[in-house]
């Protein structure tokens, strides 16, 4: 990796100022970066895909590694909470089961021991072309998306263009489904951003980034509100290889049923198929007031994938994701398959 300056501030203020004051690089990927668990940043640095002049260690800042709250108030998850902490937390497991499942589905135990929640939300894409040092595609400041015409088996079927990445985070779809928001501190102040507004499509935000964060901004906390459906949430992730894989497709689902087993409200968010966690709002609306019969499930799955535009090699993601939608709803609804 390219040599860099390492700084380890102990306060949030110092951290954001260190991010702000770093010498400007030539390229958007040469600017200063925050590091938490390093499980993503280091891989991109080793391959010279990011070449930060300064790396700001967040691990020295106190108080960002706690999970607080309860079933009535909701959760407050510090940005430095590790994925292992999240999946093992009893409050999360009993009242926000989908979140524990999402954390558990990530990578390997070793990576979950180090990787953090904040880093998970801010990790960079896994598109093959993005990860090759030899290729300068649109996302890296080049002029072409190579995946569009090339090997796009794992790329987006929804919301793509001009870049067709899929967002790699497993926590993101689940947190969006649970209505979470992030607290952010920057050199010019604090703000709270609903997670649904946090991620940006390549056609909307900067093609060089996947979210609205400014370079000097740090996520400090993730807030997950209490809801009537959080306890009936689930995360279903499809991997080609169980032992370790990113989502080929995933579904974060939550449902609130009436006593008569009628859906009062639901959340369906798709992962691994779009540049952002893809909320299937139309399918949620369709589901309201229905019972989870086989026909209703099939129709919900169909509607959820409405508008999908597969590339040459990823049409299989449509039936695959439809299956996951049906299965996730069956599970969240507490039914047997």
């Amino acid at each position: 990796m390219k040599s860099f300056e390492w700084v380890s501030p102990t306060s949030l203020n110092d951290a954001v100022n260190l991010l702000k004051s770093a010498p400007a690089g030539d390229d958007a990927d040469d600017v200063a970066r925050a590091i938490a668990g390093g499980q993503d940043l280091l891989t991109t640095m080793k391959d010279y895909i990011t070449r930060p002049t300064r790396v700001v260690n967040l691990k020295g800042i106190r108080g960002l590694d706690r999970i607080e709250g309860d079933a009535r108030k909701g959760l407050r998850i510090g940005a430095l909470v590790t994925l292992a902490q999240l999946e093992e937390n009893t409050l999360v497991r009993s009242h926000f089961p989908g979140l524990a499942e999402a954390a558990h589905s990530i990578a390997t135990p070793q990576i979950r021991n180090l990787g953090t929640v904040g880093g998970n939300l801010c990790q960079r894409p896994r598109c093959w072309y993005y990860r090759l040092e030899e290729v300068i595609c649109l996302k890296k400041g080049g002029s072409k998306c190579y995946a569009a015409e090339g090997e796009n088996k794992y790329n987006a079927i929804l919301g793509g263009g001009p870049s067709y990445i899929v967002h790699p985070s497993d926590l993101a779809p689940m947190l969006v489904a649970l209505g979470a928001s992030v607290n952010v501190t920057g050199a010019s102040g604090k703000r709270t951003i609903p997670l649904e507004k946090f991620f940006t499509l390549p056609s909307e935000g900067s093609i060089r980034r996947e979210n609205v964060l400014q370079n000097d901004e740090i996520i400090t906390e993730i807030q997950v509100p209490a809801s009537s459906f959080a306890a009936h949430s689930t995360y279903l992730k499809f991997k080609e290889r169980e032992s370790m894989d990113f989502a080929i497709s995933s579904v974060a689902a939550a449902v609130e049923l009436s006593l008569a087993k009628v859906v009062k409200q639901s959340r369906i968010v798709l992962g691994g198929v779009a540049p952002i966690p893809w909320r299937a709002t139309k399918a949620e609306t369709y589901l309201t007031g229905k019972t989870l019969s086989a026909d209703v499930l099939a129709e919900t799955a169909r509607v959820a994938l409405d508008g999908a535009k597969p590339l040459a090699k990823n049409a299989y993601k449509v039936p695959l994701t439809q299956t996951l939608v049906r299965r996730a709803l069956v599970k969240a609804g507490g039914m047997s398959a």
Binding site: W128, R131, V135, Y146, G150, E151, M244
Partner: peptide, 14 residues
Amino acid sequence: DAALGLQLNPGFGD
């Protein structure tokens, strides 16, 4: 990748 002549998955992740 046929056009670039590059291997796209040169690592144990891919």
